Amino acid sequence: MHISDGVLPISVAVSGYIAATALTAWSARRTKSSDLPKLAVVTAAFFVASLIHIPFGPTSVHLLIPGITGALLGPSAFLSIGLGLLLQSLLFQFGGLTALGANTLMMGIPALICGWFFHKFKGDNIMRQTITGGLVGAGGTAMAAIILAALLFTGGEDFVGVAKIALAAHGPVIIIEGLISAFTIRFLARVKPELLQLSFKDRAEETHA
C-alpha cells in the first residue's frame, strides 16, 4: 500500500506533505512523555507488520494495523505511523520520500478516526471492546484502501487500473485485520486493560485543568 516516487502529481505530493506535517505536529503535541514507551512499541509493530508484502498483480498487499494503532495510541497514532513510514522509506525504500506525506495521510487519518471511534464506543464490557476492536481493525484498513485508490486516481489514466486492483485486493486484508484487531483488543482487555485507557484532551488543556 506504499505509494512510490513518481506516481502522484507534484501538487498532490506537496499538499500531502503540508497536511501530514500539520497533523504530525498536532499529534506530537498531544503525546505525553509517559506515552513514549507505548508509542515506540506500537510503532515497531506497525513497522514490522507492513514490511511483509504479498504480490497481487501490479500491486501488493500487507497488514496495515491502523485500527490497533489508533485504539492503543489515540491522537499519538498519526505520529507513530509517520515515524514508521519514514523509517521504512529510508531503510528499505518502501514508498517514496516524495510520497511520504500522502502515505502518512493514507494510513494516519484512518488510525485517528479509528482511535476516536474505539474510545467513544468501547464501553467497559470485554465483549463490546472486542467487537469494537474488530470494527476499527477492519474499518481502518478499508478507509486506507479507499484513500489509496483515490490517490492513485490522481496519478492519471495509467494508474486507474492499478487503483481498482489495489482496492479489490485489500478485501481479504480487511477481514484478516478485523479478526487480528478483535483478538488483540480482547487479549489486552483481559491482561492489561489500562493500555486501552486514553485521554483525547490536548496536553495544554490538561496542564491548565
Rank of each mutant, 00 (worst) to 15 (best):
I126W: 10
M127P: 12
T130W: 07
I131V: 15
I131K: 11
T132L: 06
G133S: 01
G134T: 09
G134A: 00
L135V: 15
V136S: 03
V136P: 08
V136N: 06
V136D: 05
G137V: 07
G137T: 00
A138D: 00
A138G: 06
A138S: 02
G139T: 05
G139A: 01
G140E: 01
G140M: 07
T141Y: 00
A142Q: 05
M143K: 10
A144F: 00
A145C: 12
I147W: 07
I147C: 00
I147R: 10
L148T: 01
L148I: 04
A149I: 00
A150L: 15
A150F: 06
F153A: 08
T154N: 04
G156H: 09
G156D: 03
G156V: 06
G156T: 02
E157T: 15
D158M: 14
G161A: 08
G161T: 04
G161Q: 02
V162H: 10
A163W: 11
A163Q: 10
A163F: 05
A163R: 08
I165V: 10
I165K: 07
A166M: 15
L167D: 01
A168E: 04
A168W: 06
A168R: 12
A169V: 07
A169L: 02
P172M: 07
P172C: 09
V173G: 04
I174N: 04
I174Q: 01
I176T: 03
I176R: 12
I176V: 14
L179C: 09
I180C: 09
I180E: 03
S181F: 05
A182N: 03
A182D: 02
F183S: 08
F183W: 11
R186H: 13
R186I: 05
A189P: 00
R190S: 13
R190P: 09
K192S: 15
P193W: 02
P193C: 06
